[in-house]
Design a protein around this nucleic acid. Structure first.
Length: 121
DNA sequence: GCACTGACGCGGG
DNA sequence: TCCCGCGCCAGTG
């Protein structure tokens, strides 16, 4: 299976103004234990150039640090631009997943699995 | 093939 | 609730 292709599809499915965690993406890709690979994919541009990487944060809503964005606060600005509230915490910036976390339905998850199957990835 | 790395996450204390 | 250790696994040298 093409895990990174799946990551691309899932990321592009994250609604505007929402955020998702690495683990959540991995789960939707059918590989619950591959959260780290999701990060790897985004970091190396393996999820396509259009993937909204700024909408992906860790389990606690902490922004991933500056590493792969051009400026230290680019991810924060992109999120705020979409109406997502970002607040400073010790260790970086954080979004409230209770308010801005992507709540995907079971139906939606199943639809994704079917699509992967259909596409053969 | 081996060892090490890392945009991560969970469970025990 | 906060820490900390450990599990995870594709890439890389």
């Amino acid at each position: 299976m093409n895990f990174y292709k799946r990551v691309e599809i899932v990321c592009n499915r994250i609604p505007h103004g929402n955020t998702a965690s690495y683990g959540q993406i991995a789960l939707l890709c059918g590989k619950p234990k591959n959260a780290r690979q999701v990060g790897y994919a985004l970091n190396h541009g393996l999820a396509g150039k259009h993937a909204p990487a700024h909408r992906v944060v860790n389990r606690q809503g902490i922004l991933s640090g500056a590493s792969s964005f051009q400026t230290y606060d680019l991810q924060k600005r992109l999120l705020e631009q979409e109406g997502v509230t970002v607040q400073p915490v010790p260790g970086g910036w954080q979004v409230d997943l209770k308010r801005f976390g992507w709540k995907n339905t079971m139906r939606e998850a199943e639809a994704l699995q079917e699509e992967f199957l259909r596409l053969g990835i």
